[in-house]
């Protein structure tokens, strides 16, 4: 083959003439078929992601628990439930063909429920900021999920999505912690009124 080093057009033409299709030396279908027979629709999260998510979850849950114990010393009974749903509590997904680990999803729902019960007691400005932050994070995760549908398995998008979910969990956990602390202060104030020291 004669192509001068500086002859880009000849090289381009030679490349374009190469066959795009190359048959594999053996039939690869049996190996694929063994893995595609039972599409569950949406498969579970691969373990490194589940593990990473679980770490965040444990940290978040522990922070809430530690806060409750530290401030009250005793478990706190749930106060009157004010149903004020946190806007945009859409279910989470992890790109096409994947959902988050069920344990992760359940814990996230718990945080969201806990926050829903208390969010109306937050100062309006704080509540507005919280809702804006959560809305932004959920818009981001929705957009990344959409991109993952076009580019399944894209490692950068997967990392970005996990980071977004982690941020959302951290925001939820912080908000729950703050509102729980406010509840405890209210209980303490009420107790002081009833039993003057």
């Amino acid at each position: 083959m004669t192509i001068r080093p500086d002859d880009d057009r000849a090289l381009e033409a030679a490349l374009a003439r190469l066959p795009r299709s190359v048959d594999p030396p053996r039939d690869l279908w049996p190996g694929i078929a063994a893995r595609v027979e039972d599409r569950p629709g949406r498969s579970g999260l691969r373990w490194p992601w589940a593990a990473a998510a679980a770490v965040v979850l444990v940290v978040a849950s522990s922070a809430i628990t530690a806060s409750l114990v530290r401030r009250a010393g005793t478990p706190v009974a749930a106060g009157p439930v004010a149903e004020a749903p946190v806007p945009g509590t859409a279910s989470t997904a992890f790109g096409p063909g994947h959902t988050l680990d069920p344990a992760y999803d359940a814990a996230r729902r718990n945080l969201v429920d806990e926050l829903s019960r208390r969010i109306d007691r937050m100062p309006p400005s704080a509540r507005q900021r919280l809702e804006a932050n959560l809305g932004e994070l959920r818009r981001a995760s929705s957009e990344i999920n959409g991109l993952l549908a076009e580019r399944p398995g894209d490692p950068l998008l997967e990392e970005l999505l996990l980071a977004t979910y982690q941020d959302e969990l951290a925001v939820l956990a912080n908000a729950s912690q703050i509102t729980a602390a406010a509840d405890l202060r209210a209980v303490a104030d009420e107790t002081e009124k009833r039993i003057p020291l």
Binding site: R26, L28, R35, G41, P96, L148
Partner: peptide, 19 residues
């Protein structure tokens, strides 16, 4: 060969989102 198989398995899982 490995990457080809992985491609089709991943495609199967992601097909519901193919738009």
């Amino acid at each position: 060969e490995d990457c080809t198989q992985e491609t089709f398995v991943q495609a199967w899982r992601s097909l519901p989102s193919f738009g």
